[in-house]
Nucleic acid binder design. Structure first.
Lengths: 337, 337
DNA sequence: GCTGATCTTTGAATCGTTTCATTGTTACGA
DNA sequence: TCGTAACAATGAAACGATTCAAAGATCAGC
């Protein structure tokens, strides 16, 4: 590969000054039509592509935003990424995406890389407890917005979804459709999301004097864990069965559904209503389409970019936390009609 | 945010020349311990972070590789991305990830962005037929490797998985376990992957004189499409049923499984064996754990980086195509034992 | 104390773009 | 024809890191 054409080559080829070429690219109105045509022709003939490194060096900052997520494979983050990219594009910025895969070392790598790239700012869904690394960013003056994690407003802006409200929504829906013997499936409760969703469910159940909530702790958040809980329910027989089950995520719910429908002793939703959380793609195509709680991922991504833009523009560092309320999606698994 | 510290600031602060600071960063052995300590202390105190734009401008190229995939949410690509990132890290390069979402405009945006960033090279899983855009890259001399798509070796290197071999593997497995009345579920056959997998299956069936292969075209590649095909099978009753079903992907297979297990008239694998393709996470946690064909995504990502490295280093453009053979994963859905 | 070899450090030049003060050109009314 | 706006085009300086020839320091050996 030959060294690619520079603005100087274009200038020579079009017999103009380098400044003129730059003007064609950045302030086309300042240049006469004749000259513009000549320059554009030269650009085309030489296959000139702007060298962003030089531009950025001169400008002192890039036109990119760093986004580090825990797992790009997770539909939640995929959707956030999409929305962030689109929102950033409106600001004329591009998003550099990093996937930490829940690994602190990878995360640190990306943070360093993005700092060297002089990103305008950073959106990050941090791994574990990373106050040190983040404090360093703050000292360096890199505008940062935490995604899907609440932050000390004195330190960072953040966007998150209210899991307590989501839990309330799910349980309230079960109660509203006449269920009274509720069960919560999820675990371990050391995970904040699980704990919050349970807490929200408890809040709803307290509103009905005759309603109860049983907690069935699961081993993780997988289909298999759900099936295992489901099997233990099946063994109880018809009498002991709850009439409404709220699972901390859709995978668990699908597992529970597998157990209950396999045995054909219980019908969903007639005998037991079932609701999950996250509204993954599979929810709609389950054997019985699964009701769920949908998180406003697009709004999350869009707002994250907006908060970041605010941080970038404002001089004095005032931070905001935006908390979104999730949304109930009713499908057949809770809807006898 | 104050302008961040430059190498010159560090040099002043440590009372050395800028060249010395650069040496500390790039050739620590050339610098005496005393000086190194002073410089490192200054770097620390000033919170200096290399400006990659300046470094890259001087170097003439970046240390990044562009990777554009069709859908980061797709586990196939997620895994390829992981492997590519790890392999690139060994070469001292970072990966810039772009998600085209099957959208040609987004893809074009990323191609332009990455060119302006002067990436060392590009890995791309292109949207549709994009010979024009790619030819432009070739003219510009941007080393490019196609991922998951065979390329004219005169033009590009590429890595791909042999779908014909995968189809053969799946059908051969059904035949090897005694099935003779096979069915292929997939569609539309205009999708290359679907056509190739079918072709491979046909090849295997031809090897057994008494075996037949019926093609059941599906409306797309989703769970619902699979269920719809499954339902039509159930309606046929026991007599007309195939005894081995190969689905062009796991989603279809899960849909077929839903139909067959719901009705409890047919048992998997005793009455019908079922095998999918892709080995998605859900395959193992299906009601009946699903046999599948696993694609060697890690090898794909790793090799793509390697081919790219070859292109970058060699002067004359000789291209290679590497085709991987997928792997059979046997689970309960085809295994009566 | 001197020589020559080895090890350190220096600082100007360079990469490609943008900026902006300056110069050059054009057009038009007086 | 001249003066003067308004508009176009120019090109040197700057951004921050790396490179490398050259200068400076150090030290062993005599």
């Amino acid at each position: 590969m030959n060294r690619s054409a520079s603005i100087k080559d274009v200038a020579n080829h079009a017999s103009v000054a380098v400044g003129t070429v730059s003007n064609v690219l950045n302030y086309p109105d300042r240049v006469s039509q004749r000259t513009k045509d000549r320059v554009l022709k030269a650009i085309d003939e030489l296959g000139f592509v702007r060298n962003d490194a030089a531009r950025q060096l001169r400008a002192g900052h890039s036109r990119t935003i760093g986004l580090i997520v825990l797992d790009v494979g997770n539909p939640f983050f995929t959707s956030v990424v999409r929305a962030a990219e689109d929102a950033a594009a409106l600001h004329g910025s591009a998003v550099l995406l990093g996937d930490s895969g829940h690994d602190a070392a990878r995360e640190a790598n990306y943070i360093d890389l993005f700092q060297e790239q002089r990103v305008q700012g950073l959106l990050i869904s941090p791994v574990g407890d990373v106050t040190e690394r983040l404090d360093l960013l703050r000292e360096r003056g890199v505008p940062t917005v935490l995604v899907d994690r609440l932050a000390d407003e004195a330190k960072f802006s953040s966007v998150a979804v209210d899991d307590d409200a989501g839990g309330y929504l799910a349980a309230r829906h079960l109660l509203d459709t006449g269920r009274r013997r509720l069960a919560f499936v999820g675990g371990p409760t050391s995970i904040r999301q699980v704990a919050d969703r349970l807490q929200g469910a408890r809040r709803a159940v307290k509103e009905e004097a005759d309603a109860t909530l049983e907690v069935l702790e699961s081993e993780g958040q997988t289909v298999l864990a759900g099936r295992s809980v489901g099997n233990s329910l099946v063994e109880r027989g018809r009498e002991g069965l709850p009439d409404g089950i709220f699972c901390a995520n859709d995978l668990l719910a699908l597992g529970v559904m597998q157990s209950l429908t396999m045995t054909h002793t219980f019908r969903i939703p007639e005998d037991v209503a079932l609701i999950g959380y996250d509204d993954i793609d599979f929810a709609v195509s389950a054997v019985v389409p699964l009701s769920s709680i949908r998180q406003p991922t697009e709004a999350l991504g869009r707002t994250a970019i907006q908060l970041l833009a605010e941080e970038v523009e404002s001089q004095n560092p005032t931070h905001r936390s935006v908390v979104f309320t999730p949304e109930l999606v009713v499908r057949q698994s809770t809807n006898a009609g």
